[in-house]
């Protein structure tokens, strides 16, 4: 109400003598800049259409056909692929696996990432060395990392079982990758290990910009170490965590190579997520149409979660700055 009053007042105070022609006048330079702007963004728009819009549209298009992958020929079936998916326990199981994997590994990544960032933000010996080393898992190629982990997890000669038995934690060797729920736990752990450095980088950068006086004020106001963390650090990290969680959630949800290489989706379909199901339908079962339908369904699920995510953020009463 007050704002409307203020803008009305501003209208009334418009410069006397200003004519409609003055307002409508367009600077020829502005027109030139606008043209230049369009020329400059044109390549981006074209590439975006070629690699994003075209595959998206063609996936939706393909999902309406029953297609044999090697020949890419087949017949129009309408929404039958979707109907079959809705009745397929494998699809729902894969979706559930996908959610379990994403939520668990993302939670671990964030917790580990914040903890490591807090540690690296402290004054300590070999800090810059530690800061570089902690990024190591993120830089290692997934294939290499997974091969090493498979060797560590191996139920016959893996060092993990050996160490845990030696320490008395296990009596018998554990089948880390070939039985449930061990396989899911293993996949989640390796995912967390591989991707938590991303959280560390983002959080550490933000930590370094938190003013020291806020901690001092909180100390004098009577906050202990935990109080300073929850009342100063976490709120300051909020904005960066919103972005980190969003990005990591998208990337984890569509993660393929790490899971495929580690368990191949097994045992049976115990760790099969939707991206693995797309791959299996398209190239294992040669059902390109159904694979496309799974991919489109995956996109819809992600869209729904993103909408919910932003809705929840907005409901917290915080406009993103």
């Amino acid at each position: 109400m007050a704002q409307r009053g203020a803008s009305a007042a501003r209208e009334a105070m418009a410069v006397p003598g200003l004519t409609a022609a003055d307002r409508a006048a367009v600077n020829p330079l502005d027109r030139g800049y606008a043209l230049l702007g369009m020329v400059l963004i044109a390549p981006t728009v074209l590439i975006f259409c070629a690699v994003i819009v075209y595959p998206l549209v063609s996936a939706i298009y393909l999902s309406l056909f029953s297609i044999f992958t090697p020949t890419l020929s087949g017949s129009f079936v309408g929404f039958r692929n979707y109907a079959e998916l809705a009745n397929s326990p494998e699809f729902w199981r894969s979706l559930l696996n996908n959610l379990i994997w994403t939520v668990l590994t993302l939670t671990l990544q964030v917790v580990l990432g914040i903890a490591a960032a807090l540690m690296l933000n402290q004054a300590m010996v070999f800090r810059s060395l530690a800061r570089s080393l902690i990024l190591f898992p993120y830089f290692v190629s997934t294939v290499v990392a997974v091969l090493v982990w498979r060797w560590l997890f191996n139920d016959l000669y893996g060092v993990l079982n050996h160490l845990m038995m030696w320490a008395g934690i296990l009596d018998m060797p554990l089948d880390w990758l070939g039985a449930m729920p061990n396989a899911m736990v293993s996949v989640v752990l390796v995912g967390a290990w591989k991707y938590f450095p991303f959280v560390v980088i983002a959080v550490l950068a933000r930590l370094q910009t938190i003013p020291e006086t806020l901690y001092e004020a909180a100390t004098i106001d009577g906050a202990g170490a935990w109080g300073r963390f929850t009342d100063v650090t976490l709120p300051q990290l909020r904005d960066v965590l919103v972005v980190v969680v969003l990005l990591r959630a998208i990337w984890d949800f569509k993660e393929f190579d790490l899971i495929y290489l580690l368990t191949g989706g097994g045992p049976i379909i115990g760790t099969q997520t939707l991206p693995l199901m797309v791959y299996k339908e398209a190239f294992g079962l040669n059902e390109m149409g159904r694979a496309s339908a799974v991919a489109v369904a995956m996109m819809l699920v992600m869209l729904v979660f993103m909408l919910v995510y932003f809705r929840v953020l907005r409901a917290r009463g915080e406009e993103p700055r």
Binding site: P211, T213, L214, E216, A217, A218, D231, P235, Q236
Partner: peptide
């Protein structure tokens, strides 16, 4: 404090 050090959130 000189910078006030108010809790921004």
């Amino acid at each position: 404090f000189q910078s006030y050090a108010l809790y921004p959130h």
